[in-house]
Write a protein that binds this DNA or RNA. Structure first.
Lengths: 149, 149
DNA sequence: GGTAGATCGTTTGTATGCAAATAATTCTCC
DNA sequence: GGAGAATTATTTGCATACAAACGATCTACC
């Protein structure tokens, strides 16, 4: 017998088990992270919005598409996020004097303050997400995931 | 000096580096998986749609919310997915005779055929997603992620 | 200097995800 | 057996994601 009966609980075709697939597990882990994130930031910021503020804080004013590339958001998605952040006064956009195609995105004072307030929260979110793992496992996980990104 | 200048490339506040955060890395890894998935399945099925067919194949007819719970999709999301799969003839729904609240979701013959065709593709997608890692690393990663889900 | 190709940003359409509110039904427990 | 609580499904609203098509602008290269 190739498979011990009654031991594993999810038999399918040719040994494929949805619950063991990397894509399925990734989605569940991401869901848990999202839940932790919104418990910490509340309705204030979503994870992509936080990424946008944090990266702008780090890089200074950046063209919209370039900003999206830095945080892995495509042109359509970063536009929506910047629009919403701008409506709320965290970012502002202006034409690039050197390139009429470009829109430069910058933090407002309120956006800078929000970013500075966010770093502590964001750190806590990462810690809580990784809480089931010890320090060695955390380092392993990050290394393995980075190899796959 | 606490931090070697010029060594790390992403200095921010209090040592927080967006690019090293678990949430950010998870999003990028998920993006890569999504790209691999749609390259394999084309416009045929999305990952949640595949999860739905695969789980139905495994479990047989299941109430809609229960099905969603098994694959980590909330009631609103599983409804949309089942609706779309039903329009395309892969699933069908019927009232549960034992509980008037429930809707039972089942595979059609076409859905069963699609599922059987999909297992090989899905296996390939998982392999390709994990391709940067060797067998030991793959097992480690899956173990660590499962501990976090 | 002029054009072909690349880049930038926008828009549209579709598909998750998730929160919140609602109606219908079932369950619990006194 | 009946009221209150829980469950099931639906609907609405909002926020990512991503593909595709588009016009405007820039760059490369002849």
């Amino acid at each position: 017998m190739a498979v011990a009966p009654g031991k594993k609980s999810e038999p399918t075709v040719a040994g494929y088990t949805l619950d063991d697939q990397i894509g399925f597990i990734l989605r569940k882990v991401s869901q848990r992270h999202t839940a932790i994130f919104s418990a910490a930031f509340g309705n204030d910021l979503t994870a992509p919005q936080w990424a946008t503020l944090a990266k702008l804080y780090e890089m200074g004013p950046t063209s919209q598409n370039q900003l999206g590339r830095l945080i892995a958001l495509d042109a359509a998605t970063i536009k929506g996020i910047v629009d919403r952040l701008s409506v709320r006064g965290f970012t502002e956009t202006s034409p690039d004097p050197d390139d009429a195609r470009r829109v430069v995105v910058a933090l407002t004072d309120a956006g800078r303050a929000e970013a500075e307030r966010g770093f502590a929260l964001a750190q806590r979110i990462s810690d809580e997400t990784l809480a089931p793992l010890d320090a060695t496992q955390r380092a392993q996980l990050i290394t393995l995931l980075k190899a796959m990104s």
